[in-house]
Simulated scan of single mutants.
Amino acid sequence: MLKFLVDMFFPPLCHNCREFIPNAGRVHVCEKCLTTSRPIQSPMCSCCGIPFATDEGISHLCGNCIAKHPPFDAACGAYLYEGAVKELIHRFKYDGRVQCRRPLALLLLERLSGVVADFSPDLIIPVPLHKKRLRQRGFNQAILIGEVLAKEWRVPFERRLLQRIRWTEPQVNLAASERMANVKGAFALREPKLASGKRIVLVDDVLTTGSTVAECSNVLKKAGALAVIAVTVARVAEN
């Protein structure tokens, strides 16, 4: 009866298309919208997580990671950056729809909780924004998503440990070859000793070339982090 009354006065609507969802679960994104975004699954690169097709259907290192292994141990995206997931991320980041953080975080949880459990993390750290970008946007989307993940996974969340210490151009405006140089030296740790000996999960909304999480991971590894994996809601299909 209580659920009936709640649904009557506060009907569960899809965060993307705003249609009513009968028997809605926690995510509140309808099946029709979810079919527009493909979950990432094997085969993929076992390090950077980029999906690819193989005759055997088995995950392995891609050519880029064989040539130069990134400083992170793995990068995992829940969905490809397309369809409803892409639309929700855009509404979240650029339209200020902070209520989208929960469905996005829950979609990540559904796909990647097993990976994180196997990793046995000691800390969760969001990819930081520069203070100028933070003033413009009003929030750091990685922090808002990370708060939900940390509560669900019961892992300590250090929102201010990793800092962006210099302004960088938006990565979306740069070619893949320019992105690593753009973020070089852009991050530092407030208290490096807090990362030493820790297994760390980096959180962000989207992974494109991996340059940003690679630079963050490099800083964490230099401070003595034992292992670093990056988890994102979405991943661009091509570097």
Rank of each mutant, 00 (worst) to 15 (best):
A195G: 14
T209Q: 12
L104I: 04
L107Y: 10
Q136S: 00
S46C: 08
M1R: 02
F187E: 11
N64P: 03
K86C: 10
F92M: 09
N64W: 01
R133S: 13
D118K: 08
R235Y: 03
A230M: 09
G146D: 12
E169C: 00
H28K: 13
R135P: 02
P51M: 02
L104G: 12
F157E: 09
V233D: 10
G197E: 08
R101D: 13
V203C: 14
C76Y: 14
R159T: 08
K131F: 08
K151V: 00
Q99D: 15
E215T: 07
P192V: 00
R199Y: 12
T209V: 09
A230V: 02
V219G: 07
D7H: 11
R135L: 07
N182T: 07
G210M: 14
I200V: 11
R26A: 15
S217W: 11
K86R: 13
V213P: 15
P103T: 02
D95M: 14
F119T: 02
R199L: 10
R101G: 15
V155T: 08
V236I: 00
M8V: 01
G197T: 07
H60Q: 13
R159D: 12
A227G: 13
A24T: 01
R97G: 04
Y94S: 09
G138N: 04
N173C: 00
P121F: 03
C47R: 06
C33V: 07
I21K: 04
G83C: 04
T212R: 07
T212A: 15
I145C: 09
F10C: 12
L5V: 03
V213D: 14
H15E: 11
E110H: 14
I66T: 11
R166V: 00
E147G: 11
A78P: 11
R179S: 09
P126A: 00
I229N: 05
L88T: 01
I66V: 15
L106F: 11
F4V: 10
P126D: 05
L2W: 07
P12C: 03
L107N: 11
C30H: 12
K3G: 04
I66W: 08
I145R: 06
